[in-house]
Design a protein around this nucleic acid. Structure first.
Lengths: 225, 225
DNA sequence: TTCGGAAGTGACCGGCCGGTCACTTTCTGA
DNA sequence: TCAGAAAGTGACCGGCCGGTCACTTCCGAA
């Protein structure tokens, strides 16, 4: 009757509770951002006493935020990258590269908009800009660098194959991810502000939005004769 | 001996002090963001008692932030837009449009990087995402919409003239401004974090950066045969 | 010189929030 | 059954910070 994993019931239950706390914290961070989130609210939402949170995460709010970023946001991003552009993807021609990156952008938007909205909101709201313990600051920088690196790798391949313009891959990766980020930001702004002042990008589906971004970034804004 | 403006000395001095307070507040907001800035620090930097700040800005921190955004950031942006792409700019051909928008992006980066660094930092750090009084929230949304509108207008002209792809102008304006914002963000990240984890975009001058962005956005990433 | 109001000031208040810890409850293995 | 460990709890602490207000200082008009 034991699960295949070699965890005692105690350990399994501890893991469940840890997850429940993280779920609650993710929801609160997504709603209020790091600075606006209160540990009390997280505890209430998780249905634990505040002290219990410090049993599981001795460094408190700071640690919760960092762990969430690691386990939900960064891990999700890496998964999407690995799945959408595996190392053997054909990137030899402009057409192949275009369709591969289009798929990638679609997968990104799909992940953030439909699969893990809370992760997205946490990713967008001020995130790493907040002052945290130094060790976590470094960890954040490392995660970001790792994600950019993972995106830059296929870009470099496509550049080497002559499918993309010979631009430096890292800045291009920054721009690509920045555009996804910017699009999501506009999306939630429009959603959170129904007063109608924030004119949103009026895209229906995530795929339509992805196609728009792909067109702008890969085909360019200039008309072609 | 009187200045041409019809202000009494009293009024002029009051204006000077108001400006001094705003300068101090801008510096503090630029350094710490809205949430991290303390009114005490602003008062110390302005060399006024805290109470005096509330003489000039009865709504306190909130009002200071909003006024700064209005008078420094938004005004600066509008000025740059109006100067770089006046209403009679030639946008009839792809080449003309490209060079006009290249000039615009250069002017933007120049303004933020060299002319008003503090305005840039305030613009970047969490800005309108912060919860403020409702009337200010609406004001922010209005300013943003106005800026996007001002950028979208020449884009629409270029689209109508067939110089740009027939894409909706507002989303394109969002993307354009978002890329500038993203670039600036990467720039200051790299600067504030000399640990080297944040791999920056290694551009020398603002103009080189602007040219890179122009290439990506207008020519597109795909190689041309 | 005098007087009234405008301007300036900083000690103080109240609320918030992250983190602690002495205590209670629950579990487990002997 | 029971003792001790593990887990859970929330009242409480200390610090911070935005905003207030009774008081002082300054200044210009009469």
């Amino acid at each position: 009757m034991e699960a295949t994993v070699s965890l005692s019931r105690r350990e399994r239950e501890r893991l469940m509770r840890r997850t429940a706390i993280l779920d609650a914290a993710l929801a609160v961070f997504a709603e209020h951002g790091y600075a606006g989130a209160s540990v009390d609210e997280i505890a209430v939402r998780a249905e634990f006493g505040k002290g219990t949170l410090y049993n599981y995460f001795p460094d408190g709010k700071d640690e919760l935020f960092f762990v969430l970023f690691e386990e939900r946001v960064a891990a999700g991003l890496h998964r999407v990258i690995a799945q959408a552009i595996p190392a053997d993807t054909d990137l030899a021609t402009p057409a192949a590269a275009r369709s591969a990156f289009q798929e990638f952008i679609r997968a990104l938007l799909h992940f953030f908009l439909e699969e893990s909205r809370d992760a997205m909101l946490m990713f967008l709201k001020e995130g790493y800009r907040t002052k945290l313990r130094v060790e976590h600051e470094a960890g954040f920088a490392e995660h970001f660098a790792g994600i950019i690196e993972a995106v830059a790798r296929p870009i470099q391949r496509a550049v080497d194959a002559g499918a993309l313009r010979p631009l430096p891959a890292h800045p291009v990766a920054h721009v690509l991810m920045g555009n996804v980020r910017g699009f999501l930001m506009a999306e939630i702004d429009a959603e959170c502000d129904p007063s109608g002042h924030f004119e949103p990008a009026p895209f229906g589906t995530a795929d339509e939005a992805a196609d728009f971004l792909t067109t702008v970034l890969f085909d360019g804004l200039l008309a072609r004769s």
